[in-house]
């Protein structure tokens, strides 16, 4: 009788755990990230040998992130706020799978689209059209999908008459618009956004905002890094405040933003 009860409890626990795993799209537990750097980057043999014989080759360890834990539920969005160099972008790259954490575990459930830098894959000698195909391939589109989406992308970027000239003749705003149009057309479960929501002119920015809201309504989760607090409040339910590689606070967005703003103001005076 007793054993049966225990079994039931164990079963119930297992069911709970399964439920919770389905529910979370991102779950980070005690994630630490270390970078090793030498004082100056030694990337040639002479320098290496000189330092090797002088015994100056010790690496310095930088802890970029320390014991970061949080989770994002399906359809929920989270903002990473904090000062420059706090480790926010590194955290995004860990979620994207570009970096492997030194310690801790990362569970990501669903497809991830990292929008870390617009046009990172652009070749400035190639035309706009060629770049749409190249960049699209890198973001994971198939050829068929791209052929279907090409018109949509160009429409969104509003660059019809420029698609056949090399990117080097574009203005920086135009490049950013093209990059955003390609990236935003993806339909992922999780979208990682790093300070790119303020590209282009006022008109284009409004268009981006409405596109983002549309994706959010479709149930896409966002992890965004932004210094625009109004945007953060508008888009996210939760926020994490990271300062000097550590999580200062984590919780409901209005709360955290308020605390962070107060902290910033206290630094000024």
């Amino acid at each position: 009788m007793e054993i049966k009860e225990q079994n039931q409890i164990i079963e119930k626990k297992q069911i709970d755990r399964q439920d919770s795993n389905d529910e979370y799209v991102i779950k980070l537990e005690d994630v630490c990230m270390d970078f090793y750097t030498r004082d100056e980057k030694v990337d040639n043999l002479k320098e290496f040998l000189v330092r090797f014989f002088r015994g100056k080759l010790e690496k310095k360890r930088f802890r970029i992130l320390e014991d970061v834990s949080f989770d994002v539920k399906k359809g929920e969005s989270i903002a990473l706020i904090g000062h420059n160099g706090a480790g926010k972008s590194t955290l995004l790259k860990i979620i994207a799978g570009i970096y492997k954490p030194t310690k801790g575990s990362v569970l990501v459930n669903g497809t991830v689209a990292p929008l870390l830098n617009l046009g990172a894959g652009f070749d400035y000698e190639a035309t706009g059209k060629e770049n749409v195909y190249l960049n699209g391939a890198i973001l994971g589109y198939s050829k068929k999908e791209l052929e279907k989406k090409y018109k949509e992308i160009v429409d969104f970027a509003e660059l019809h008459e420029y698609m056949h000239i090399p990117l080097k003749n574009y203005s920086s705003g135009m490049v950013a618009r093209l990059g955003f149009a390609i990236a935003i057309d993806v339909k992922p479960d999780i979208l990682l956004v790093d300070e790119i929501l303020s590209v282009g002119d006022e008109n284009f920015r409004r268009k981006c905002a409405s596109k983002i809201n549309e994706l959010k309504e479709q149930g896409v989760s966002f992890v965004i890094v932004s210094h625009n607090m109004a945007q953060v409040k508008n888009l996210c339910e939760k926020a994490i405040w990271i300062e000097n590689s550590k999580v200062m606070d984590y919780g409901e967005v209005n709360d955290i933003v308020k605390k962070y703003t107060e902290y910033c103001n206290s630094l000024k005076h």
Binding site: N21, I94, A96, G97, K100, P101, S105, V106, L107, V108, N109, G110, T111, V112, D189
Partner: peptide, 11 residues
């Protein structure tokens, strides 16, 4: 279930 860094392919 812990699958560090892997995305979207669990099933």
């Amino acid at each position: 279930m812990k699958n560090s860094g892997k995305t979207g392919f669990l099933q």
